[in-house]
């Protein structure tokens, strides 16, 4: 059987939606599919390093954006029942109790499985995020690169 291709656009930076995207992506990769995840707008926050990173010069607005947005999977908010940040902590506790992989583990597994993770450079510019603020192993590209992969895919999700 031919291997097929899946693409996922991760637009959302909500913890629960990012979880869903990485579970689907890892499941597809486990079924021998080539998977491309394209991270744009708020979805880029899932790829941020948790620590503050010194970067090349940013405009004041870019600085403000980067400072206000969550740094990495451990700081994302829930789309519902966020309760000023208590919601994700409760959900993470329930996930541990149910032996569900953490978001950090899912991201690491995605890399191990060779899932292609692409950061949208246009969104990075708008939101003031630099490559050095994001985790290793990413590609940097734009809409044409995503569409090129989507053309060859039989499933394209926008999350």
């Amino acid at each position: 059987m031919d291997t097929t291709r899946k693409t996922i656009i991760l637009f959302s930076g909500d913890f629960d939606k990012v979880m869903a995207a990485f579970i689907i992506a890892n499941g597809a990769a486990a079924m021998d599919d080539d998977v491309t995840m394209f991270f744009t707008f708020w979805g880029l926050n899932a790829l941020r390093r948790p620590e503050k990173v010194a970067t090349s010069r940013k405009s004041p607005l870019q600085k403000a954006f980067a400072a206000m947005m969550p740094r990495g999977p451990g700081r994302l908010a829930l789309s519902h029942m966020n309760f000023a940040g208590a919601g994700p902590k409760l959900m993470q506790r329930m996930m541990r109790q149910q032996n569900v992989m953490s978001l950090e583990e899912l991201i690491a597994t995605a890399r191990e499985q060779g899932i292609k993770m692409v950061a949208c450079t246009m969104s990075m510019d708008i939101m003031g995020l630099r490559a050095e603020e994001l985790i290793d192993g990413l590609e940097f590209a734009g809409v044409a690169s995503y569409l090129g992969d989507a053309d060859e895919a039989n499933v394209n999700l926008f999350i």
Binding site: I23, N26, A30, M31, Q98, N99, M101, T109
Partner: peptide, 13 residues
């Protein structure tokens, strides 16, 4: 055992 979706198929793979 003890793993949840997608753990079992990752293990199988």
């Amino acid at each position: 055992r003890g793993t949840s979706c997608p753990g079992p198929i990752l293990a199988a793979k």
